[in-house]
């Protein structure tokens, strides 16, 4: 189903999630347009990672809706009003159209780099081995790792593993890519190579939702910045506004602490 460029690809509608007595996400609503790059920033515990993981149902949520191209995913509301989780098969289909890269890369250690990238398209989209191979080689080349196709993940550096992870997600030709703090676990000198890949993707028009601590990067690459704290979206807007002209006290405090930490 082709994406309508005037409708949001991802719609988050009044999403709420509790963890025991703790409200992790409070009535969060967000719409991501095709081709848009949204960066989500905020202090630890603000719920930004949880929100991301709710989009592709890696986390369940208690109320609200997530829609991919206007079709709700994860839960269906029956005519009698009761909310039921969709069968795993349906959710898996939606997930196949949403790509995700993780902070801890999560490459499959028992497969080579090439097979890591090939296995999902082959098994899930039933792509032929040759086509999957070709796509994998192309993507690995695009992220700068053509010379590592036969290596195993444990032989690669963190930055290389993350780039493979991104290629693996891209191989499924997702409509939108989610990035969960993909540089936070990397040594500083390896961060740049991964951010370069993200930059490339953004320029090529991929719809991206990026949870990150890299403020400079967010400022340069994002079309919109979403600032979260304590489970809600406190402020959002273009990078100009967020960084140069913050409106809320919470955001001002966050930016102040961030600048202090980095100016030292």
């Amino acid at each position: 189903m082709p994406t309508d460029p005037t409708r949001p690809i991802i719609t988050i509608d009044h999403l709420s999630k509790r963890f025991g007595s703790l409200a992790v996400l409070r009535d969060v609503s967000l719409a991501v347009m095709p081709g848009e790059v949204v960066a989500v920033i905020g202090p630890s515990g603000s719920g930004k990672t949880t929100l991301l993981r709710c989009i592709n149902l890696l986390e369940p949520f208690d109320a609200g809706e997530v829609r991919l191209d206007d079709a709700p995913i994860g839960y269906v509301v029956a005519p009698n009003g009761r909310r039921r989780r969709q069968p795993e098969r349906e959710i898996a289909k939606a997930r196949a159209a949403i790509g995700m890269a993780f902070q801890s890369f999560n490459l499959f250690p028992h497969m080579t780099v090439l097979r890591n990238v090939m296995v999902a398209p082959m098994r899930i989209k039933r792509v032929s081995r040759d086509a999957a191979h070709e796509t994998a080689v192309r993507l690995l080349d695009r992220v700068g790792l053509s010379d590592k196709v036969d290596a195993y993940p444990r032989q690669l550096s963190g930055g290389q593993q993350q780039r493979v992870a991104i290629a693996r997600a891209l191989a499924m030709e997702p409509k939108v890519m989610l990035f969960d703090e993909v540089t936070s676990a990397l040594d500083p000198e390896l961060v740049g190579e991964v951010l370069a890949v993200l930059r490339q993707l953004a320029e090529a028009g991929m719809t991206m939702v990026i949870v990150t601590h890299e403020m400079q990067f967010a400022r340069d690459v994002a079309d919109r910045i979403v600032f979260m704290a304590e489970g809600s979206i406190v402020e959002q807007g273009p990078p100009q506004q967020i960084f140069n002209d913050p409106q809320s006290e919470r955001l001002k405090a966050f930016l102040r602490r961030y600048r202090e930490a980095y100016l030292l």
Binding site: N56, L58, E88, R89, I91, A92, K93, R95, A96, A97, I98, G99, M100, F102, S104, F105, N106, L107, F108, P109, H110, V119, A120, R123, I124, A165, R168, A169, M172
Partner: peptide, 30 residues
């Protein structure tokens, strides 16, 4: 088998026997 492996498999759209057979069981056997 680390939780992240389940996440990665699911995020790619795997579930059920695919997820177990391709990602989880081979690692568990090792």
């Amino acid at each position: 088998v680390p939780r992240g492996q389940w996440d990665a498999g699911r995020a790619l759209g795997m579930h059920g026997r695919w997820l177990m057979g391709i990602v989880i069981v081979p690692q568990a056997l090792r």
